[in-house]
Design a protein around this nucleic acid. Structure first.
Lengths: 333, 333
DNA sequence: CTGAAAGCGCTAACAG
DNA sequence: CTGTTAGCGCTTTCAG
């Protein structure tokens, strides 16, 4: 009942060559005579030999494994990114260690530590505000890290995302053009850069361009959940706000349904534009107009960038901005 | 710019003890004098030593890493399971290598192979029909595997799920009790055991109990997508079917919206009960009545079971059935 | 083109 | 309670 293990040594013996030669054929090293190669391959087949990646990792100091730090897999936004990451990773023969962080700094730090202990070759990080302690570890470990789905430039880390400032500005301008005098900005926690910095900035730019004064009371930072949106409906109904740009689809769906259930007609009496164009935007009634983001691609490009970095290849652009778009549906006029 | 590495040997030298002793304190072995322990701990702190998990894995033949094979992370059902798995895993100090399989046999096999090459200590498998080739590998590798979210008994593997037969029977009976003479069973691919075997069986039992003859034309096996459901609406509208039990929430949401868009009132003219009680069931209008499954728990219990198996602990029940429920909302009378 | 040998960093008997 | 000594299975010079 022992874990049977056929090692490189067994193969070498059976094939009457040295371990080094077996290692060469396994690794596709061209310096092997075809005849020898075939002989070795035959033995490998016969013995059903499978190289031990752990031993390989120890000897070569490369694990072909990358860490992926994700706030929450059950969030459609992150799950899409993760899918893109995983696809490209497996295309390049890497495996993914997935770790949920809850966007919680201390958990993130712990996760980073175990990832580094496992000698991952690189890390894809999803999240805002990367703590100094974490940056410290990244620096010390000397492994490449790319921030995915968030603008990472302020952390001075390579990143892939869309231009949240521009996307927000466009969406809000759209709402403003429909004659709405008071447009709300509804997002997740405002202390996250993506909200409090980028989206807020785009929001202000749109206001300014329209000659409307910024009002702090029109900014709602809450948590990104359906329920939070649903609850927010009451507050918005009792204000002079008549439109909202929302930073998360579940949040937007909650707001939409909350409004509808309270008798507020969308889009006639209240317009909504959401951000991520996930399935939620199509499932609600009315369907939601949304900024579109190439989520899968953001993940895929992140991973591709990481492979380059792990290979010490030249990269011309460390902070990649992918194009966003807009899809008009029925929650805005 | 070298990857700085302080090893156990450095610590031993600085602390003037042997590697073995350092190893002992790192691993919490009680056979170390408190004074020595403190001395070592201090050096570890000072040198910022972090054990290399790869070396440890090679020496101990345990990687504290488990593989998770998932059909599609972006599917809310699986994502919930994954969250439960990850939480318990990290609670027990395991990491997760996440691999998407697309429920595609050959990709699954490939994934299993690389997971085994990486010497994972165990595997959580989500999916129907586990190919013989894969079972073969599992057997050869001698590592524990638990099937999560699917009934794994026919594969003779440990598993955690709800009782799909009973859940389906109840839901269909419910629909039948409302006077529907023709109730459809709408699921993903019928060649998957969960659909073609368990759900179908529950469906037939309900029919039989109600004295209604089974009609093959009332069973719809399609793919689990919003669009598939939306398209199915036309077919159902033009039949004598007046209710459906649906095996997936996105699929159900598509059907619901398709029906509504075609002028069929739900639940007045057509009733729908769905299966997974994910957010989709709440987002649609009308909200969908649904079988409820403790998805997070299924994942959590799967992982917990796996830890026991990896520890060679006794387990009294290899095929765990968690309780399901039903939540009445507005898509059924 | 191939082999010998020295580790990679750590755990695990086995002594003492 | 602590040290010595082998490896774990593979990669990687270095010779030849």
């Amino acid at each position: 009942m022992e874990k049977q293990t056929v090692t490189i040594y067994d193969v070498a013996r059976e094939a009457a060559v040295s371990m080094a030669t077996v290692s060469r054929v396994v690794n596709g090293n061209p310096n092997v005579k075809p005849a020898t190669r075939k002989k070795v391959l035959d033995v490998i087949e016969r013995l059903d030999y499978r190289p031990n990646a752990v031993a390989r990792g120890l000897a070569s100091k490369k694990t072909t494994t990358v860490g992926v730090i994700i706030p929450d897999v059950t969030n459609a936004f992150f799950a899409q990114l993760a899918l893109g990451i995983d696809d490209i990773a497996s295309m390049y023969k890497y495996n993914i260690i997935l770790a949920n962080s809850d966007e919680n700094g201390s958990k993130e730090l712990q996760v980073v530590n175990t990832l580094l202990a496992k000698q991952v070759d690189g890390i894809v990080f999803m999240g805002n505000k990367i703590g100094d302690d974490i940056k410290q570890e990244f620096k010390r470990a000397q492994i490449p890290v790319v921030v995915s789905g968030f603008m990472g430039e302020e952390d001075n880390l390579p990143s892939v995302s869309i231009d949240y400032v521009a996307a927000t500005k466009e969406a809000v301008t759209n709402l403003l053009n429909h004659g709405n005098q008071h447009v709300a900005l509804v997002t997740g926690p405002i202390d996250q850069a993506i909200n409090g910095k980028y989206r807020l900035s785009g929001y202000k730019q749109a206001l300014e361009a329209a000659g409307i004064e910024f009002d702090d009371a029109s900014v709602f930072g809450t948590n990104e959940s359906y329920d939070a949106g649903y609850k927010l409906a009451e507050q918005l109904q009792n204000s002079d706000i008549s439109a909202a740009f929302v930073g998360d689809d579940e949040l937007a769906a909650g707001l939409l349904n909350g409004l509808t259930d309270r008798g507020v007609k969308v889009p006639e009496a209240f317009e909504i534009i959401t951000s991520n164009d996930t399935k939620y935007a199509e499932v609600t009634r009315p369907k939601m107009s949304s900024v579109t983001q190439p989520l899968y691609d953001i993940g895929a490009v992140s991973m591709r960038l990481l492979t380059k970095l792990m290979n010490s290849e030249e990269v011309d652009e460390r902070n990649i901005i992918l194009p966003h778009g807009f899809v008009e549906r029925d929650s805005a006029k």
